[in-house]
Structures are given as structure tokens and as C-alpha cells.
Write a protein that binds this DNA or RNA. Structure first.
Lengths: 319, 319
DNA sequence: ATTTGACATGGAACGCATTTCATAACTTAC
DNA sequence: GTAAGTTATGAAATGCGTTCCATGTCAAAT
């Protein structure tokens, strides 16, 4: 393999000059520049990027930690990140964790070892303190409502949104409202639980633990949800479903079972994904792509900020 | 930042010995080993992985080229790849191309520059010759039916599967059969077109160009398909839909419009994704995860092979 | 005529871990 | 008792590009 030294020899210049040509630095005569470019061509030279990385201490790689890459929520987030990455000439290294802490640690370790310049954590299992420990090694940004002065974050206010959605359902006459989430742990789920409890207290409703349905991630989990609520003595008349995918699954399942929506069961989805529009599902729009973009920008720039993006209710036919 | 030289000084040994300890090489006395480990601990040392990369010429990074990361087809493929990657301690660098050749070239260039050890191309736009040009720089594997002696491939035989599905529909009484694909170019689409043309010829049917519906990728494209076939003079009575997502969208759309399935329109999906099971859609099972695994193995090992995996028809309620 | 700044070029240090080679002590084998 | 192998250790070379610093030329400014 040709290296920069060989090029220098071939072109009859110093390695410094070669480097200058290769990186478009000024102060190189046309003559020598051409000689170098000619040498590059005839030798089919390509930089050993690892040497560049070692030398510069940067890799133009950004890590992205997410539990599932085949989920539309993260798919959209990733899309936003990827768009910005393209513009900044960054590449993404994906860490699909399945919510396993060990995988998250791998990502943090790569940051420590300088294999990635910065890290976006879309959803985490590990402690916040673990993340903070790794901050000296490079920017880490999170996608959750934390306003510390340590880590950068981009998020929507799930507490407020949840309250808004619950109030909306209440105004529509519902007082038995359930909600579906992914996993129980995680900042978002806690926010939602708080919102739900506060809502229940405010209107003096009965708090029913089984109105909280967890492990709802995919379209096909809709089936499970319907089964579960049908087994209840007093099933909810409305569901807040924190993913349009699952909401779509629920709606489909209801159609199959001839459960009338919204009369027998009202549904509010989350994200405003294409499927929600197509199936005319009332949903909370979450600007996932924008969030992705913002996360990326925070990560490249490395400046500390906590940014809240707006979400809004989109009224359609399932409430 | 501490480096290996500092460690050596701290532990009172040579850098070689430090390296040996760090990489679990034999021939180091317990005593010195402990001294080194102690030094690692007190200095919170972490390898500069870029130096390792430069030195070893390997990065334990594998590139994965795919058009969309938010599509279940590629999601499942990626899942299989990721599983194996984990086992082999490889990380994945994702190249989401949106079918843009320039993005594919970026991936090839990273291979050339040694930033990735090998490359899996799940779907491509660029010429085969372009890929072959880059083979000297590292293993490249493809996910399409090519049996050259240059590039490794893992694939299903889309020609055979398509014929099988068409024959199945024919036996069920259909002779006006349409099919939905993603893009028109690409090896898979060509295979399918060949199969379709051969089928039409075999049974002396009329070849109708508008029975081929392209640009069908997502659930929401189902709407478009139904609109298109309803505008035809003699709409097909059966559709082969090369993605369960789209098939699910079509089925949903038909339910909304009270088009009876399979009586008025029969549907065969592809992939056998969870959504197909849930919606009881007849489909062709494609072992996407296994394909992903296989692709990874071919890429790490770098040995040349062309492997066909089996697909099979799963009879459900949409035919 | 002299100082100053722009332009051009190269030597050498730097980033850091791996690995080959050389050396030496100590066993085991015949 | 000597050859052969095992264990232990370190110096130095290797992988390769970037960049600081020094040096030199030439034109413009004073």
C-alpha cells in the first residue's frame, strides 16, 4: 500500500507538502501540487484513515444508542440524526441495545477509547451517573427530560402532553382511561405515571394499577392490549397509547373483533407516524425527526443545553 | 491522557510487557502483571483504539449499506447482522443510502481507507463493477442472487418463489394477477419480472404492464395500490405484494372500503413479519434474520461463497 | 535601503499500540 | 553434559498522517 511517504518520494516533495495538498492547505505551488496529485493518481493512493484518526484524535464517527432499530419511533429519530450527520460528514455507529445495559456500556467505552467522537443515547437503561462519568471523554446527549447542568438533552415534555391528552379525553366524557407504554422504567414512563396520577387525583378518579399496560412496542402488541382490557371488570373506555404502531394494532384488532371505535373504545396514539394518518388515528405529534437533528447538533458541537421541543394533539377519528 | 508508555514507567516495566498484559499474552510474571494492572487502575487508563487500529490494520467495524433503516424488511435483516456482530465483537457502521449511489460510494471509500474491515450491501444502486473494483480492500457481501466468483452473496431465489406464488394463485383460480414491488431496478425486481413474464407466457395470459405496481415500500402505500387498481378496466383479482407491510396496508385499506378479501382481491405478502401473522395474511416467509447472520459471517470470514436460503409459502386467510 | 509580510517548503516531533527480534535464565530431554 | 525447548523481558521497528517550527525567497511598504 502506498503511503504519504511514498507519494512524497514519487512527487519529489516532502511529506508535509503532500499532506498540504491532500488537505487543501494553502502555500503550495501549482507545480508541486500537480506532481502530488499525479502521484496520487498513478499509485491509486488512499489515506489510511486510522492514521488520520490517531493523529488528529477525531474519527468523525458518532455513536447512536437505541434499543431497537426496527421500531418506527427510533427509525424516525435515527432518520433525523442521519440527515444531519450527512451534512456534517459524520458517520453513525449504531448500538442496538435491546435495553441491555452491557451494550450501552460498550458504547460509552468506545467513546472513552476515542473510537467515536460523541454519543447520542436515545433511550437508556444505565444510571445517569454512569453517563456522567463518561462525559470527560466526549459529548453525550440524551433524549429525555433532564435539565441538569451536566448532560445535553433534547426532549418533549411528556408530563404536559400526557396531561393534555388526558384532559382532552376527560372533556370528551371519559373517566376510565388506561394507557399503554413500552417499559415501566425510564424517564418518559415516570413522567407519564406522574401525569396520570396527578390527573386521577385532580378529578377524584379511582387509580387502577391495571389500567397501565406495559411492554407495548409493536403493531402486534395491539392484540395483547385488547385481550387484557377485555378481561377487566371495568375496562377503560379510552386508551392513551404511546406509539402509533401499537395504536394501529389496537384499532385493527378492534375492527376484527367488531369493537367500535371511538364509541366503545377511544384511542389516542403517539408520534403521528404515517400509519396514524392513514388509519385516521387521533394522535400526539412528536417531532421525532427534528429531535434527531437537534440531538446530532448538540452532540457535534458539544455545547451544553437542554432543549424542549413542542408536541401537539392531532384530532382525527379515534376519539 | 495516560498512554502505554506512561504505564510502563509507572509499573517499572517495558511497553512490550504492558502490551502483553493488556492483550492477555503469555510469558508475563504474575508480579509484573499485577504491577501493570495496578497502574491501569490508578491512572484510569484506556487504550487509544485508533492507535490499535493503525497498528493492527483492523477496526472491528463492519459497514452495512441499506436504503432505509426504518423499514421492517431491512430492520429484520439488520437484526440478524447485529446479533452475529455482537458475538464476534464487531460494531456496525450504518449507511442509510435512500438508494443514492453517492452514499454507497462513501461506504466503499471507507473500506478503501480501512475505516471498516468489511462491508455488507443489503441493496444497491451502483454497478456491480464498482463493487468489484473495491474488493481488494476488503470483503464485500451482497444480498442478491448473483453467483459470480468475485463477490460473496446470500439470497433467496426470488424467481422460484415468485413462480411458486403465481402458480399457487393460478391454481386457486386467478388469472389476472398483479404484483407490487419497491423499485423497478435491482436484481430482485428483475428476477421477479422474469418470473412473471415466464408465468404469463406459460399459461398464455395477457401481459399487462400496469399490473406491475412499483414504489411500494410502506404500510401507507397500500392506499395508493388500491386506488391504482380500482382505476383499471380489468383490475387484477390477486396481488403479490413484496412486503408484508404493504400487504397489511392493502388489507387495511380494503377493510375500510369494504372490499372483500380474498373474494374480491387475494393477497400474498412477503417476509412473514409479525404483522402478517396478526392480520392473517398469506405470505412468503423469507428468513431475513438468518440471511443477516449469514451475510455477517461471510463478511467477517472473507471467504467467497454464494448461498441460497429457502423461502416458503405460508397459507393464511388472504388467498 | 531596510523592514515587514506573504508565500513556499521541509525536517522532525507527535499521536500510540503492536510485534518482531534479540537476549537471558531456567528446564527438560537424551 | 549438552542440545533443545520454555519462560520472561525489553529495545526498536512499524503502521501513517498531521502539524509545529525553522528556514528561505520575493515583493511591497516605509
Amino acid at each position: 500500500m502506498t503511503n504519504i511517504k511514498d507519494l512524497a518520494k514519487m512527487a519529489g516533495v516532502s511529506v508535509t507538502t503532500v499532506s498540504r495538498v491532500l488537505n487543501n492547505h494553502p502555500y503550495v505551488s501549482e507545480e508541486k501540487k500537480n506532481a502530488v496529485l499525479e502521484a496520487v493518481k498513478v499509485s491509486n493512493y488512499h489515506k489510511n484513515i486510522n492514521a488520520v484518526h490517531l493523529s488528529t484524535g477525531k474519527t468523525l464517527l458518532m455513536g447512536v444508542v437505541l434499543p431497537f432499530s426496527d421500531h418506527p419511533y427510533f427509525g424516525l429519530l435515527l432518520k433525523g440524526i442521519a440527515k444531519q450527520a450527512l451534512e456534517y460528514n459524520y458517520k453513525l455507529v449504531l448500538f442496538q441495545t435491546d435495553y441491555m445495559e452491557s451494550r450501552e456500556l460498550e458504547a460509552l467505552q468506545m467513546l472513552q477509547q476515542k473510537q467515536i467522537d460523541s454519543l447520542i443515547i436515545c433511550s437508556r437503561t444505565c444510571d445517569l451517573s454512569t453517563i456522567e462519568e463518561h462525559l470527560p471523554f466526549g459529548p453525550i446527549v440524551l433524549c429525555e427530560n433532564i435539565k441538569g447542568n451536566e448532560v445535553s438533552t433534547t426532549f418533549v415534555n411528556h408530563y404536559n402532553i400526557f396531561v393534555e391528552a388526558l384532559e382532552y379525553l376527560y372533556r370528551k366524557g371519559h373517566n376510565k382511561i388506561g394507557y399503554c407504554i413500552g417499559r415501566r422504567s425510564g424517564t418518559n414512563s415516570h413522567e407519564r405515571e406522574m401525569a396520570y396520577r396527578d390527573f386521577v387525583k385532580k378529578y377524584n378518579l379511582l387509580y387502577k394499577p391495571d389500567y397501565t399496560l406495559d411492554e407495548c412496542f409493536y403493531f402486534e402488541d395491539g392484540d395483547k392490549v385488547i385481550k387484557q382490557i377485555q378481561e377487566m371488570d371495568a375496562p377503560p373506555t379510552a386508551l392513551l397509547v404511546t406509539s402509533d404502531q401499537v395504536a394501529a394494532g389496537i384499532v385493527t384488532c378492534c375492527k376484527n373483533r367488531l369493537i367500535s371505535i371511538p364509541d366503545e373504545l377511544a384511542i389516542i396514539g403517539f408520534d403521528n407516524q404515517p400509519i396514524a394518518k392513514m388509519m385516521n388515528i387521533t394522535t400526539i405529534e412528536i417531532p421525532l425527526e427534528d429531535m434527531g437533528k437537534n440531538l446530532f447538533l448538540q452532540a457535534v458541537n458539544g455545547d451544553l443545553s437542554n432543549e424542549e421541543l413542542p408536541a401537539k394533539l392531532i384530532e382525527r377519528g379515534t376519539v
